[in-house]
């Protein structure tokens, strides 16, 4: 476990990104999430917007920025669904806050950390979604935890590639 924790000041520094990347990446993630399943329906198991929220939240290490990033991306996701606006918004807001809070304590560049982080946050996001839909707005929702575990595993694989690609956009201090 100590391996996963930040061991140097450098590992705890917040990462800076060019503002076009901060603006375009979430939008591109929401767009691809809406467009790709049209051509490849199986790709709807991915959650690109959630991965982007996790990445920017843990990298910037600012709970407020993470909260706002999660809220904006979640509301954009809700806009293209038929569900009430706020379901993904609330879930992603909480994920953004938690990811940024954890990013203050652990080494987020470590691949093992990333695997655990993405897996757990994806499951937490699913749990929040379930609670909101089934218990908060009381809509019928069939659920399979096995499907959610598979979904989390698939997102881990995508997340590792995506995080490595986004690492290249960081501003070098």
């Amino acid at each position: 476990m100590p391996v996963l924790m930040a061991s140097s000041r450098r590992e705890l520094d917040s990462q800076q990104f060019p503002w076009p990347i901060l603006l375009a990446a979430p939008l591109l993630a929401v767009f691809l999430q809406a467009y790709l399943p049209l051509r490849y329906p199986r790709l709807d198991v991915f959650d690109l917007p959630l991965l982007v929220v996790i990445y920017f939240s843990v990298s910037r290490r600012s709970p407020i920025a993470g909260t706002l990033t999660g809220a904006v991306v979640g509301l954009l996701q809700d806009g293209v669904t038929h569900q009430p606006v706020g379901i993904h918004g609330i879930a992603n807001t909480i994920i953004g806050f938690l990811a940024a809070s954890i990013g203050l304590r652990i080494d987020v560049d470590n691949p093992v950390t990333r695997i655990l982080m993405i897996f757990i946050f994806t499951l937490v996001d699913s749990f929040l979604y379930l609670v909101i839909v089934r218990h908060l707005i009381a809509e019928p929702l069939a659920w399979s935890w096995m499907h959610q575990i598979v979904r989390a595993a698939v997102n881990v694989a995508l997340g590792l590639v995506l995080f490595a690609a986004l690492d290249r956009t960081r501003l070098r201090g």
Partner: peptide, 12 residues
Amino acid sequence: VVGTSGSDQSRI
């Protein structure tokens, strides 16, 4: 058809 909802919980 130009897009989807991108969610397997919402078939839009």
